[in-house]
Design a protein around this nucleic acid. Structure first.
Length: 104
DNA sequence: CAGGGGGCTAAGG
DNA sequence: GCCTTAGCCCCCT
């Protein structure tokens, strides 16, 4: 606890929480926003460890290509897609337009 | 200390 | 558009 990476995790979670409903961001985008552009993978693995009752809007995070980073057949994929569409994000051919990406 | 892997990315073919 | 390659960085074996 309280190591530099723990602090970074906090910062990342905060940054994700800062993404408004109806918008999305990428793993790398979040990483960059907290000052660590090369931590994209770390962001991903961090989200994976979140409890399912977390308040963090993990579903607003997609990869840089604007696609959901889960296999199409997985439950997680459907869950994320559903939540996003619920918030007004349109997904065409499995892809989210750049216009939905939130700019910090 | 080495190895493998993950909700990644950008660049090439 | 798809696949591969090469960086990337933390974490668990």
């Amino acid at each position: 606890m309280n190591s530099s990476t723990d602090q970074l995790k906090l910062a990342i979670l905060q940054q994700i929480a800062a993404v408004p409903a109806g918008y999305v961001s990428s793993y790398g985008g979040i990483a960059k926003a907290v000052g660590y552009p090369s931590y994209s993978r770390f962001v991903g693995s961090l989200l994976k460890t979140l409890p399912k009752d977390t308040k963090v809007p993990w579903h607003r995070i997609v990869n840089a290509q604007g696609k959901i980073s889960f296999p199409m057949d997985s439950p997680a994929f459907n869950e994320q897609k559903k939540r996003l569409e619920n918030e007004g994000v349109v997904i065409l051919k499995g892809k989210i337009s750049k216009q939905y990406f939130f700019n910090f």
